[in-house]
């Protein structure tokens, strides 16, 4: 199994807190769509799997290796979390795409400008945006730019938190098409949190229902 998580347990809410336990697995090339009512802890699950926040218990495995055996920074680059609200840095679009490769871990990989332009084109981001100030982008452009950046990092697992929420119909299709093409590459998989069953155009989809799983227990 490419990516697997067992009995990930976490607490939701502050006042009437409740505990959630979730398990799941994804084969290479697959998309696992995480469904659940809002406030069911979908985003929290992704953040935990990305090791951006601790959980009460459970373990995740990347290509059979437990997260306990992989350093945090390495894990976070391999199991890459894309926040719902795109995080853009001061500077140009090009500068934002180059940002991940300023870390020591990814610096040897480096930014491939041709690949970056190709991905931007696929996501309907014009060539002229390249030198534009990233803060002047619209919400939809910013979301697609952050997605392009994730593709350039080329992780083993992408954790996508409603990547298409701010997108119109056309760019949503473009995003899903690009994602499914990316998934055809070797040892790749994705977890997708979505609100409105928004996974049209994706192949090899399986589902994880958070609320149900909890109620069933």
């Amino acid at each position: 199994m490419h990516f697997q998580f067992k009995d990930i347990t976490y607490t939701l809410g502050f006042g009437q807190s409740r505990q959630v336990t979730v398990s799941g697995s994804i084969a290479a090339g697959e998309v696992l769509v995480v469904r659940g009512y809002s406030g069911s802890g979908k985003s929290t699950l992704l953040r935990i799997l990305a090791r951006l926040q601790p959980c009460d218990g459970g373990e995740a495995y990347l290509e059979g290796k437990s997260w306990l055996q992989i350093p945090g920074a390495v894990w976070r680059a391999d199991v890459h979390y894309l926040a719902q609200k795109p995080a853009l840095f001061d500077g140009t679009v090009a500068g934002n795409l180059a940002k991940p490769f300023e870390t020591r871990l990814l610096s040897k990989k480096g930014l491939n400008p041709d690949q970056a332009r190709a991905y931007m084109k696929k996501l309907l981001l014009g060539e002229d945006l390249w030198e534009q100030d990233a803060r002047t982008l619209s919400g939809g452009e910013a979301a697609r730019l952050a997605f392009v950046r994730a593709l350039l990092i080329d992780p083993k697992v992408m954790l996508l938190d409603e990547p298409a929420a701010a997108l119109d119909e056309e760019s949503r299709r473009a995003l899903h098409l690009t994602l499914s093409q990316w998934l055809e590459g070797p040892s790749r998989a994705a977890l997708l949190v979505t609100h409105n069953n928004d996974y049209e155009g994706l192949h090899r989809v399986s589902f994880l229902d958070i609320g149900k799983q909890q109620r069933g227990e």
Partner: peptide
């Protein structure tokens, strides 16, 4: 948010 974004880049 930006600090966490850097972390997801393996920082």
């Amino acid at each position: 948010a930006l600090i966490e974004a850097m972390l997801t880049f393996g920082a």
